[in-house]
Protein backbone atom coordinates (compact mmCIF):
# COMPACT_ATOMS: atom_id res chain seq x y z
CA UNK A 1 0.00 0.00 0.00
CA UNK A 2 1.26 3.48 -0.84
CA UNK A 3 1.37 5.88 2.04
CA UNK A 4 1.49 9.58 1.16
CA UNK A 5 4.82 11.17 2.03
CA UNK A 6 3.33 13.65 4.49
CA UNK A 7 1.63 10.91 6.47
CA UNK A 8 4.84 8.95 6.69
CA UNK A 9 6.81 11.93 8.04
CA UNK A 10 3.97 12.51 10.50
CA UNK A 11 4.42 8.98 11.77
CA UNK A 12 8.16 9.31 12.01
CA UNK A 13 8.58 12.77 13.56
CA UNK A 14 7.10 12.21 17.04
CA UNK A 15 9.68 9.49 17.56
CA UNK A 16 12.47 12.04 17.12
CA UNK A 17 11.34 14.25 20.01
CA UNK A 18 12.98 12.24 22.80
CA UNK A 19 16.33 11.72 21.00
CA UNK A 20 16.36 15.46 20.23
CA UNK A 21 15.70 16.27 23.88
CA UNK A 22 18.57 14.02 24.97
CA UNK A 23 20.83 15.73 22.44
CA UNK A 24 19.77 19.15 23.72
CA UNK A 25 20.50 18.26 27.35
CA UNK A 26 23.88 16.92 26.23
CA UNK A 27 24.70 20.16 24.39
CA UNK A 28 23.69 22.26 27.39
CA UNK A 29 25.62 20.07 29.79
CA UNK A 30 28.83 20.16 27.75
CA UNK A 31 28.48 23.91 27.19
CA UNK A 32 28.10 24.51 30.92
CA UNK A 33 31.83 23.97 31.40
CA UNK A 34 32.14 20.43 32.71
CA UNK A 35 35.49 18.81 32.05
CA UNK A 36 35.59 17.60 28.43
CA UNK A 37 37.04 14.25 29.46
CA UNK A 38 33.93 13.67 31.48
CA UNK A 39 31.40 14.85 28.93
CA UNK A 40 32.75 15.57 25.48
CA UNK A 41 30.88 18.01 23.29
CA UNK A 42 28.48 16.61 20.68
CA UNK A 43 30.68 18.26 18.06
CA UNK A 44 33.68 16.18 19.17
CA UNK A 45 31.67 12.96 18.94
CA UNK A 46 30.19 14.02 15.65
CA UNK A 47 33.61 14.72 14.18
CA UNK A 48 34.61 11.13 14.97
CA UNK A 49 31.38 9.78 13.46
CA UNK A 50 31.85 11.97 10.40
CA UNK A 51 35.08 10.17 9.51
CA UNK A 52 34.22 6.52 10.02
CA UNK A 53 37.10 5.26 7.90
CA UNK A 54 39.86 7.05 9.79
CA UNK A 55 41.71 5.17 12.47
CA UNK A 56 40.80 6.13 16.02
CA UNK A 57 43.06 5.60 19.03
CA UNK A 58 45.18 3.01 17.23
CA UNK A 59 42.48 0.35 17.15
CA UNK A 60 41.24 0.60 13.60
CA UNK A 61 38.46 2.78 12.25
CA UNK A 62 34.88 2.95 13.51
CA UNK A 63 33.89 1.32 10.24
CA UNK A 64 36.32 -1.56 10.70
CA UNK A 65 35.26 -2.27 14.27
CA UNK A 66 31.62 -2.01 13.34
CA UNK A 67 32.07 -4.40 10.40
CA UNK A 68 33.84 -6.93 12.62
CA UNK A 69 30.98 -6.82 15.12
CA UNK A 70 28.31 -7.12 12.44
CA UNK A 71 30.02 -10.05 10.71
CA UNK A 72 30.35 -11.84 14.05
CA UNK A 73 26.70 -11.25 14.84
CA UNK A 74 25.46 -12.30 11.41
CA UNK A 75 27.56 -15.48 11.42
CA UNK A 76 26.37 -16.52 14.86
CA UNK A 77 22.78 -15.47 14.20
CA UNK A 78 22.63 -17.40 10.93
CA UNK A 79 23.88 -20.56 12.61
CA UNK A 80 21.37 -20.02 15.41
CA UNK A 81 18.50 -19.69 12.91
CA UNK A 82 19.57 -22.72 10.92
CA UNK A 83 19.68 -24.92 14.02
CA UNK A 84 16.91 -23.47 16.19
CA UNK A 85 14.14 -23.29 13.58
CA UNK A 86 14.15 -26.99 12.60
CA UNK A 87 14.60 -28.06 16.21
CA UNK A 88 11.80 -25.76 17.41
CA UNK A 89 9.42 -26.97 14.72
CA UNK A 90 10.22 -30.53 15.69
CA UNK A 91 9.58 -29.76 19.36
CA UNK A 92 6.31 -28.02 18.52
CA UNK A 93 4.91 -30.72 16.28
CA UNK A 94 6.09 -33.91 17.99
CA UNK A 95 5.35 -34.60 21.62
CA UNK A 96 8.06 -37.27 21.69
CA UNK A 97 10.64 -34.68 20.63
CA UNK A 98 9.23 -32.27 23.18
CA UNK A 99 9.55 -34.78 26.01
CA UNK A 100 13.09 -35.57 24.91
CA UNK A 101 14.28 -31.97 24.64
CA UNK A 102 12.19 -29.86 27.01
CA UNK A 103 14.25 -30.46 30.17
CA UNK A 104 17.56 -29.78 28.43
CA UNK A 105 16.18 -26.58 26.94
CA UNK A 106 14.88 -25.36 30.27
CA UNK A 107 18.22 -26.10 31.93
CA UNK A 108 20.30 -24.46 29.21
CA UNK A 109 18.11 -21.42 28.64
CA UNK A 110 18.84 -19.57 31.91
CA UNK A 111 22.58 -19.77 31.24
CA UNK A 112 23.01 -16.31 29.80
CA UNK A 113 25.38 -16.06 26.86
CA UNK A 114 27.52 -13.72 28.94
CA UNK A 115 27.88 -16.37 31.61
CA UNK A 116 28.99 -18.76 28.88
CA UNK A 117 31.62 -16.43 27.46
CA UNK A 118 34.51 -17.32 29.78
CA UNK A 119 33.86 -21.01 29.18
CA UNK A 120 33.94 -20.45 25.44
CA UNK A 121 37.21 -18.59 25.82
CA UNK A 122 38.62 -21.56 27.70
CA UNK A 123 37.33 -24.03 25.14
CA UNK A 124 38.28 -22.21 21.99
CA UNK A 125 41.03 -19.82 23.19
CA UNK A 126 41.30 -17.17 20.52
CA UNK A 127 41.13 -19.56 17.62
CA UNK A 128 39.56 -17.97 14.58
CA UNK A 129 37.77 -19.16 11.50
CA UNK A 130 41.11 -19.05 9.69
CA UNK A 131 42.71 -21.53 12.11
CA UNK A 132 39.79 -23.89 12.14
CA UNK A 133 39.21 -23.99 8.42
CA UNK A 134 42.96 -24.32 7.84
CA UNK A 135 43.09 -21.43 5.42
CA UNK A 136 46.89 -21.43 5.36
CA UNK A 137 47.16 -19.03 2.49
CA UNK A 138 45.52 -16.43 4.69
CA UNK A 139 47.69 -17.09 7.68
CA UNK A 140 50.17 -14.32 7.21
CA UNK A 141 47.91 -11.74 5.68
CA UNK A 142 45.23 -10.05 7.73
CA UNK A 143 41.61 -10.29 6.72
CA UNK A 144 38.32 -9.94 8.52
CA UNK A 145 38.29 -13.72 8.95
CA UNK A 146 41.12 -13.34 11.42
CA UNK A 147 38.74 -11.47 13.67
CA UNK A 148 35.99 -14.09 13.65
CA UNK A 149 36.82 -16.03 16.79
CA UNK A 150 35.10 -19.38 17.17
CA UNK A 151 34.37 -18.70 20.83
CA UNK A 152 32.62 -15.45 19.99
CA UNK A 153 30.49 -17.17 17.38
CA UNK A 154 29.59 -19.89 19.87
CA UNK A 155 28.42 -17.23 22.32
CA UNK A 156 26.38 -15.63 19.56
CA UNK A 157 24.72 -18.89 18.66
CA UNK A 158 23.94 -19.45 22.32
CA UNK A 159 22.38 -16.01 22.57
CA UNK A 160 20.24 -16.24 19.47
CA UNK A 161 19.30 -19.89 19.75
CA UNK A 162 16.72 -19.97 22.54
CA UNK A 163 14.37 -17.16 21.56
CA UNK A 164 14.23 -18.59 18.03
CA UNK A 165 13.76 -22.13 19.32
CA UNK A 166 10.88 -21.16 21.58
CA UNK A 167 9.31 -19.05 18.84
CA UNK A 168 9.41 -21.92 16.38
CA UNK A 169 8.11 -24.40 18.95
CA UNK A 170 5.15 -22.28 20.03
CA UNK A 171 4.50 -21.34 16.41
CA UNK A 172 4.29 -24.96 15.39
CA UNK A 173 1.78 -25.54 18.18
CA UNK A 174 -0.32 -22.54 17.14
CA UNK A 175 -1.96 -24.29 14.20
CA UNK A 176 -5.69 -24.00 14.76
CA UNK A 177 -7.52 -27.23 15.40
CA UNK A 178 -10.19 -26.48 12.85
CA UNK A 179 -7.54 -26.14 10.14
CA UNK A 180 -5.98 -29.45 11.11
CA UNK A 181 -9.40 -31.09 10.96
CA UNK A 182 -10.18 -29.60 7.57
CA UNK A 183 -6.83 -30.78 6.22
CA UNK A 184 -7.31 -34.25 7.62
CA UNK A 185 -10.82 -34.55 6.19
CA UNK A 186 -9.48 -33.46 2.82
CA UNK A 187 -7.02 -36.33 3.00
CA UNK A 188 -3.78 -34.48 3.73
CA UNK A 189 -0.95 -36.61 5.11
CA UNK A 190 1.61 -35.62 7.75
CA UNK A 191 4.07 -34.16 5.26
CA UNK A 192 1.43 -32.01 3.63
CA UNK A 193 0.10 -30.83 6.98
CA UNK A 194 3.60 -29.85 8.05
CA UNK A 195 4.40 -28.06 4.81
CA UNK A 196 1.08 -26.28 4.29
CA UNK A 197 -0.29 -25.81 7.82
CA UNK A 198 2.36 -26.05 10.53
CA UNK A 199 5.01 -24.06 8.70
CA UNK A 200 2.87 -21.13 7.56
CA UNK A 201 1.20 -20.90 10.99
CA UNK A 202 4.60 -20.88 12.68
CA UNK A 203 6.22 -18.19 10.57
CA UNK A 204 4.96 -15.18 12.58
CA UNK A 205 6.23 -16.71 15.84
CA UNK A 206 9.52 -17.65 14.20
CA UNK A 207 9.90 -14.04 13.06
CA UNK A 208 9.23 -12.80 16.60
CA UNK A 209 11.81 -15.23 17.92
CA UNK A 210 14.30 -14.06 15.30
CA UNK A 211 13.79 -10.42 16.23
CA UNK A 212 14.34 -11.20 19.92
CA UNK A 213 17.30 -13.40 19.04
CA UNK A 214 18.88 -10.72 16.87
CA UNK A 215 18.48 -8.18 19.67
CA UNK A 216 20.18 -10.53 22.10
CA UNK A 217 23.00 -11.34 19.67
CA UNK A 218 23.76 -7.69 19.16
CA UNK A 219 23.69 -6.96 22.87
CA UNK A 220 25.83 -9.96 23.69
CA UNK A 221 28.48 -9.42 21.03
CA UNK A 222 29.27 -5.95 22.28
CA UNK A 223 29.49 -7.18 25.84
CA UNK A 224 31.63 -10.20 25.00
CA UNK A 225 33.99 -8.09 22.95
CA UNK A 226 34.84 -6.25 26.14
CA UNK A 227 36.37 -9.43 27.53
CA UNK A 228 39.90 -10.48 26.65
CA UNK A 229 40.34 -12.52 23.49
CA UNK A 230 39.90 -9.91 20.82
CA UNK A 231 41.25 -6.59 19.73
CA UNK A 232 38.55 -5.54 17.37
CA UNK A 233 34.81 -4.84 17.46
CA UNK A 234 32.68 -2.09 18.89
CA UNK A 235 32.77 -3.58 22.39
CA UNK A 236 36.53 -3.65 22.28
CA UNK A 237 36.59 -0.08 21.03
CA UNK A 238 34.42 1.11 23.90
CA UNK A 239 36.40 -0.70 26.57
CA UNK A 240 39.69 0.49 25.14
CA UNK A 241 38.47 4.08 24.95
CA UNK A 242 37.57 3.82 28.62
CA UNK A 243 41.06 2.62 29.47
CA UNK A 244 42.67 5.56 27.74
CA UNK A 245 40.00 7.99 28.92
CA UNK A 246 38.64 8.91 25.49
CA UNK A 247 34.98 9.46 26.31
CA UNK A 248 34.36 10.99 22.89
CA UNK A 249 35.31 7.71 21.18
CA UNK A 250 33.25 5.81 23.71
CA UNK A 251 30.15 7.87 22.99
CA UNK A 252 30.70 7.59 19.25
CA UNK A 253 30.81 3.81 19.74
CA UNK A 254 27.56 3.88 21.71
CA UNK A 255 25.84 5.89 18.99
CA UNK A 256 26.97 3.40 16.35
CA UNK A 257 25.77 0.45 18.47
CA UNK A 258 22.35 2.05 18.86
CA UNK A 259 22.05 2.86 15.16
CA UNK A 260 23.21 -0.54 13.91
CA UNK A 261 20.99 -2.35 16.43
CA UNK A 262 17.96 -0.36 15.32
CA UNK A 263 18.85 -1.01 11.68
CA UNK A 264 19.17 -4.78 12.14
CA UNK A 265 15.84 -4.96 13.94
CA UNK A 266 14.24 -2.80 11.23
CA UNK A 267 15.48 -5.12 8.50
CA UNK A 268 13.99 -8.15 10.27
CA UNK A 269 10.78 -6.22 10.81
CA UNK A 270 10.43 -5.60 7.11
CA UNK A 271 11.02 -9.26 6.35
CA UNK A 272 8.52 -10.33 8.99
CA UNK A 273 5.84 -7.85 8.03
CA UNK A 274 4.13 -10.04 5.48
CA UNK A 275 3.83 -12.95 7.86
CA UNK A 276 2.28 -10.75 10.52
CA UNK A 277 -0.25 -9.44 8.06
CA UNK A 278 -1.24 -13.00 7.30
CA UNK A 279 -1.83 -13.72 10.94
CA UNK A 280 -3.87 -10.58 11.47
CA UNK A 281 -6.11 -11.57 8.59
CA UNK A 282 -7.08 -14.65 10.45
CA UNK A 283 -8.53 -12.83 13.42
Amino acid sequence: MKVPKGARAGEFLPGLILPAAVLLIWILASASGLKPALIPTPQAVLSILARPFDGVIASGSIFWNCTVSIIRVLTGFTIAVLTAVPMGLLMGSSSAARRFLALSVELARPLSPLAMTPLMLVLFRSRTVVDVLGLTSLRYSHSILHEIQIGMIAVQVWGGFFPILLGAASGARSVRRIHLEVAELLGAGRAMIFRHLTLPSAIPDIMTGMRLGMGRCWMVIVASEMLPGTNAGLGYLIRYSYEIQRTDVMLAGLVVIALVGALLSHVLDRIGKRSFELRRRER
Binding site: L185, L197, P200, S201, L278
Partner: peptide
Protein backbone atom coordinates in the same frame (compact mmCIF):
# COMPACT_ATOMS: atom_id res chain seq x y z
CA UNK B 1 -17.23 -31.18 5.54
CA UNK B 2 -18.22 -27.51 5.66
CA UNK B 3 -17.73 -25.73 8.97
CA UNK B 4 -19.74 -22.81 10.30
CA UNK B 5 -17.11 -20.22 9.44
CA UNK B 6 -13.43 -19.23 9.49
CA UNK B 7 -12.20 -22.60 8.33
CA UNK B 8 -10.42 -21.40 5.20
CA UNK B 9 -6.63 -21.37 5.39
CA UNK B 10 -5.88 -17.64 5.71
CA UNK B 11 -2.39 -17.96 4.26
Amino acid sequence: FVFQQHALFPW
